[in-house]
Amino acid sequence: MFKAVSNNPSAESKDIRWFYDQYAPMLPGYINGIVQDHQKPEDHLVAILTSFVKDVVILQEKCRLNNWLQLRQYAQSKLTLFAAKDHQLKPHPSLNKGRLDLLDDLQKRIFCAIYYHGKSVSYLAAAIGCDESEIRNQLKLSIDKMRRTSGN
């Protein structure tokens, strides 16, 4: 699809539309978890999707992840300025929580810090005051909890 986007002008519009339909609604939810300003998510969405489609051929060669994970990491890297802010290890109150409500406080803090802000295991271990294996364990437990609700 990506090569078609860059090399085949006639297929381009259709492919962009397909990509947009698949991932555009997921991205504002994700951006909302990082960016505090409510006016900005649409601007970020346009900027991220545009540059993603533009840069994606290079990424496609390097990246081993599926489209959404690739796009999520790309968005996270583009929003580094916002993600790098010394956040309070608390999910943003206006966040569309969805399955996050299934998690206990600690799991929610760990999951959000990693998912939205890309915090490392070692950083979280130091910030929360526990060892790295506990952080890994809590991360796995929180993902498992949310996965179970979708039947997996």
Binding site: P25, M26, L27, P28, G29, Y30, P41, L69, R72, N96
Partner: peptide, 12 residues
């Protein structure tokens, strides 16, 4: 993970 992101999606 994709399904999880869909559950937290917001219509642009």
């Amino acid at each position: 993970m994709e399904v999880l992101a869909q559950s937290m999606s917001i219509e642009p």
